Amino acid sequence: MWTTSSYADKYGDELDKLRAEVPPVVHPVARTHPRTGRLTLFVNAGFTTELIDADGSPVDDSDELLNQLCRQAEIPEYHCRVRWAPNTVVIWDNQAVQHYGANDYYPSRRIMARASVSGG
Rank of each mutant, 00 (worst) to 15 (best):
V43P: 00
F47I: 03
N103R: 12
A20P: 00
P76K: 01
H27M: 11
N44E: 04
R31H: 10
T32D: 07
Q95W: 11
W84I: 08
T88W: 11
H27T: 08
S57C: 03
V82N: 04
Q95H: 13
V43Y: 00
V97F: 14
T48D: 09
L51R: 00
T49G: 05
Q98K: 02
S116V: 13
P86E: 07
S6Y: 04
L51S: 02
L66V: 01
A8K: 03
V90R: 06
R110V: 05
T36E: 07
V90Q: 07
A45M: 09
T88K: 10
T3C: 14
S5D: 15
E50I: 03
D61P: 00
L15I: 13
E64L: 15
P107R: 10
R38A: 14
K17F: 09
S108R: 14
Q68G: 04
P28Y: 08
N94E: 08
S108M: 12
E50W: 05
R71D: 12
Q95T: 10
Y7M: 01
D16F: 00
P28E: 05
D9I: 02
H79L: 05
V82K: 07
K17S: 11
S116Y: 08
D61A: 13
L65V: 15
P58M: 02
D16S: 14
H79P: 01
